[in-house]
Amino acid sequence: MISIKGLTKSFDSLEVLKGIDLEVGKGKVVVVIGPSGSGKTTFLRCVNILETPTDGKISIGEQEIDFSRKVSSRQISSFRRLTGMVFQSYNLFPHMTAIENVMEGPVTVKKEAKQKAAEKAEYFLSKVGLADKMKHYPFQLSGGQQQRVGIARALAMEPQVMLFDEPTSALDPELVGEVLKVMKDLATEGMTMMVVTHEMRFAEEAADEVIFMADGLIIERGKPEEIFSQPKAERTRQFLRLIQ
């Protein structure tokens, strides 16, 4: 489904990603963990091309982008539509109600009829448990509710892959569960997902594969039970000790 080869990213002289290779099968859930500064968020943002990789190839389904050549903005836009992104700070559009947030992509980008987009938005908002909050503006919603609108907004574009960048890190502890539940439901339904998170419980329960990143490289990867109970690399052991 997703195939990433030799992905690198430098900011000026600072090399943040030093060559990442990864395959994610259709319907698989990959959780990326690692210390801050390991490049995991940059990695995820590269898959959505919010950061343009310096070099490497990414393919999703049939489409491939090769960053060793010049990439046009049209290419980037069409590639981005394959992925849905959920941000740490939600980034909902504050001047639009929940339903307008979810309709915005289908109406503006896909040029769908408003009526049809509204029906679809209602469906996705109900799916994330917000059927009764559709007319609310983001400031009238809790963090957990806002993040669920963010998930619905990404789903409404019907992406082939969902990317989550620390989706629960900005939330109060009691609101984390409701967002993780929506994510687990998505995983169960067979959505292909890449999740950067510190929620190890989520990784244990929902991930097909856990990737440990440090210093811009993938240090170790494996099934969650392998990574969490018998990590091979010293760097992984160190990290897991620190967070437990």
């Binding site: 981005r80 849905g84 941000f87």
Partner: peptide, 20 residues
């Protein structure tokens, strides 16, 4: 993040500018 949210749902620069 507002620009990025616009881009992430496939918007062009112009769409993100005028809509968001």
């Amino acid at each position: 993040g507002q620009w990025e949210a616009g881009y992430s749902i496939g918007m062009s620069y112009r769409q993100a500018l005028t809509r968001i």
